[in-house]
C-alpha cells in the first residue's frame, strides 16, 4: 500500500513505473521471436554490444540512442560476416564479437573516468529515469509494436520456415537485420530499467514462460508482454520497498513466474507431466 501511495506522490516513481511497464511489453514481444529463432545468445550479444555506442555518445554529447543502435547493428553484421565467411560456427562468432564490443565499451568509459555511469548502464537505475528517457522509451515501444503488428506475417513465416519464405521471394536476410535493429532498440530502451547485463533475461524469460503456455504465436506474444509487465511492476515494488537494484528485482520476478509456469503449465508443466506418467504406469500394473 505504501508503494501505491508513493507512486501517487512521487513523479520519479511514476516515470519509473511507466518506463519499466513499457520495457516489459516490448521485451516480451521481441523476445518471442528471439527464442523461436533460437537466438537467445544473439539477444545477449546485442545487448552487450550497445555499450561502446553508449559510451561514445556520452563522449560526443549526443543522445545515447543513436550510438547504441549503431554499435548494436554493426556487431550483428560483424557476427553474420564471420560465421558466413569461415568455418567458425554462429555461436562462436557471437561470443567473439560481443565480448570485443563490450570490452571496448568498458575501456572507453573508463577513459572517460565515469565509473558511476558505467555501473548504471550495466545494472540499470530505473528510479533515475528522466522525462526524456521515458519519451524515448515510448517512441521505441510504438515503433516496435507497430513493426511487429504490420510485419507479423513476414516475421512468422521467416521464424517458422525460412527456406519456404526465401523460396517465395521474401528478403529473409533483410528481415533478419530488421529484427536485429528492433532488438537493439529494445535493448536501448531497457538500459535504464534493467541494465545491459540483465536485458537478456527480460527478453527471453517472459517469452520462454509464454512458450510453455500456448500453441499459438499471437497468444504467446500477448502472454510474454503480460508476464513482462507483471515482472516489471513486482520488481519495481521490491526495488523501491527494500532499496534493491531494480534490474535484479525485475529479473527475479520474471524468473519466479517462469519457475511457476515450468512446474504448473497445464500442458507442459513438469508436475502434471510427472503425474501423467505415474498414472499411466499405475494403470498398467
Amino acid at each position: 500500500m505504501a508503494f501505491i501511495e508513493a507512486v501517487m506522490q512521487y513523479g520519479f516513481l511514476q516515470k519509473a513505473l511507466l518506463t519499466s511497464v513499457m520495457v516489459g511489453i516490448i521485451c516480451g514481444v521481441i523476445g518471442c521471436f528471439i527464442i523461436l529463432r533460437g537466438m537467445a545468445l544473439m539477444g545477449d550479444a546485442i545487448s552487450h554490444a550497445v555499450l561502446p555506442g553508449v559510451a561514445i555518445s556520452y563522449m560526443l554529447g549526443i543522445n545515447f540512442f543513436f550510438g547504441a543502435v549503431f554499435s548494436g547493428v554493426l556487431t550483428a553484421i560483424a557476427i553474420g560476416f564471420v560465421s558466413q565467411n569461415s568455418r567458425i560456427k554462429h555461436d562462436t562468432s557471437i561470443g567473439i564479437m560481443f565480448t570485443a564490443a563490450f570490452a571496448s565499451g568498458i575501456i572507453i568509459i573508463t577513459m572517460l573516468k565515469s565509473s558511476t555511469d558505467l555501473y548504471h548502464i550495466l545494472f540499470g537505475n530505473v528510479l533515475a529515469v528522466r522525462s526524456s528517457d521515458m519519451w524515448i522509451t515510448l517512441g521505441i515501444s510504438l515503433i516496435v509494436i507497430a513493426a511487429v503488428y504490420l510485419f507479423y506475417k513476414e516475421l512468422l513465416v521467416t521464424s517458422f520456415d525460412e527456406t519456404m519464405a526465401a523460396a517465395y521471394g521474401l528478403p529473409v536476410r533483410f528481415i533478419h537485420y530488421f529484427l536485429m535493429t528492433l532488438l537493439t532498440m529494445v535493448t536501448v530502451a531497457s538500459l535504464q530499467t534493467v541494465g545491459i547485463v540483465l536485458v537478456v533475461a527480460m527478453l527471453i524469460t517472459p517469452a520462454a514462460a509464454a512458450y510453455l503456455l500456448t500453441e499459438r504465436l499471437w497468444v504467446m506474444i500477448f502472454l510474454a508482454a503480460g508476464i513482462g509487465v507483471v515482472s516489471s511492476i513486482v520488481g519495481l515494488y521490491f526495488s523501491f520497498t527494500y532499496n534493491l537494484a531494480s534490474g535484479a528485482t525485475i529479473v527475479m520476478a520474471a524468473t519466479s513466474i517462469f519457475v511457476l509456469v515450468f512446474l504448473f503449465s497445464p500442458k507442459h508443466g513438469l508436475v502434471w507431466k510427472t503425474l501423467r506418467v505415474k498414472k499411466k504406469r499405475a494403470s498398467l500394473v
Binding site: L36, G38, L156, S159, F160, D161, T163, M164, A167, Y168, G169, Y211, T214, E215, R216, L217, V219, M220
Partner: peptide, 20 residues
C-alpha cells in the same frame, strides 16, 4: 517465385513451434 511451392525436408522444421 510466387508460382513455385517448396516443401522443405522434415528435419529442417522446428516442430515445437507454437503453430496449429
Amino acid at each position: 517465385r510466387k508460382r513455385i511451392a517448396y516443401v522443405p525436408q522434415r528435419n529442417d522444421i522446428d516442430w515445437d513451434f507454437p503453430i496449429t
